[in-house]
């Protein structure tokens, strides 16, 4: 069983779990992910391995509550278990001393960008980081990012914390001021990664993104995670999840990700109705 041993609330809709998963923890590296299933009715959903402790046999998962599965996950408490966790999956980030790198994390994407930032800093890179979220309530880990960054820029869409801007704005300035930047990493909502790539393109800086397509098995068996890019379609789970963002066909990716919207809304609604009933029952019992 994959027992939750620690729970933390990072922001309004983002939660952190430390989970027992010794098989995964033994081999995990920055940039890889797991497939989890909440219970026997659950779907298989991918989550990045935000951190790991091979000795303790645990991994850290950070997720944003966006629909049925992640909302249900949010109700799990310490001592509860996931039905399944498989991994580590996907390629690990290629950590090297590139010189100067720029890290961009948006929303829940701050979680997966952190271990990569740390590894790159430890490998000797000069690190400039930009993290952003819609508002202050959705921001987390400024401290951790600060610790492994030579420079950290925080921004929010509404200006409730840091600078009032989308991450692409400071990114452009950073690239103008740092013509020697060797590589950019961007992780966050697909739309943010798309615009990050559009921003870095004129500067000709290689830009690595971590794609979050819909997945089923996570082992290359279904092709549901495929993305169109220069040179043909690729499977995110086995060929990625990191890719050169400049060759990704973002429009097709965004369309594929919204394919199950009406089903997702139905599942979420049923879940919320069900929770609501449970809450009422609990109230009545009190």
């Amino acid at each position: 069983m994959y027992r939750i041993i620690h729970k933390e609330i990072l922001s309004e809709s983002v939660k952190l779990f430390i989970v027992e998963a010794p098989v995964v923890a033994r081999k995990a590296r920055a940039g890889q992910f797991v497939i989890v299933r909440n219970d026997e009715y659950g779907e298989r959903i991918p989550l990045t391995i935000a951190d790991y402790d091979s000795e303790a046999g645990t991994i850290t998962l950070i997720f944003q509550e966006v629909g049925k599965s992640t909302m249900q996950m949010g109700t799990f408490e310490v001592g509860d278990s996931y039905e399944n966790i498989a991994g580590p999956l996907g390629h690990a980030t290629e950590i090297e001393n590139y010189g100067k790198v720029v890290m961009v994390g948006g929303g829940v994407g701050i979680a997966p960008i952190f271990p990569i930032t740390r590894a790159l800093k430890q490998a000797g890179n000069q690190v400039i980081s930009i993290i952003g979220a819609r508002s202050k309530e959705l921001l987390f880990w400024e401290g951790r990012m600060q610790e492994y960054s030579d420079e950290l820029i925080v921004c929010t869409d509404d200006g409730s914390a840091g600078r009032k801007a989308l991450v692409t704005e400071p990114l452009k300035e950073v690239l103008e001021a740092n013509r020697d930047a060797a590589k950019v990493w961007a992780i966050g909502p697909a739309i943010m990664m798309k615009f990050t790539c559009l921003t870095t393109k004129p500067f000709n800086v290689p830009t690595i993104v971590s794609l979050n397509t819909v997945m089923v098995d996570g082992t290359g068996m279904c092709g549901g995670c495929r993305v169109a890019m220069e040179g043909g379609a690729r499977f995110v789970c086995v060929d990625g999840p990191e890719f050169d963002g400049h060759i990704v066909d973002w429009d097709i990716l965004l369309e594929r990700m919204s394919f199950y919207r009406s089903e997702e809304q139905l599942a979420t609604k049923q879940w919320l109705d069900h929770q609501c009933k449970l809450d009422k029952a609990a109230e009545a019992a009190e």
């Binding site: 909440n38 009715y41 659950g42 779907e43 298989r44 049925k68 599965s69 089923v216 098995d217 068996m221 279904c222 199950y260 089903e263 997702e264 139905l266 599942a267 049923q270």
Partner: peptide, 17 residues
Amino acid sequence: TRSNLMKAYLFPKYDTP
């Protein structure tokens, strides 16, 4: 796989669409 393994034909009792 969606239909058999994940039982999507019983959606939304099962989560996979």
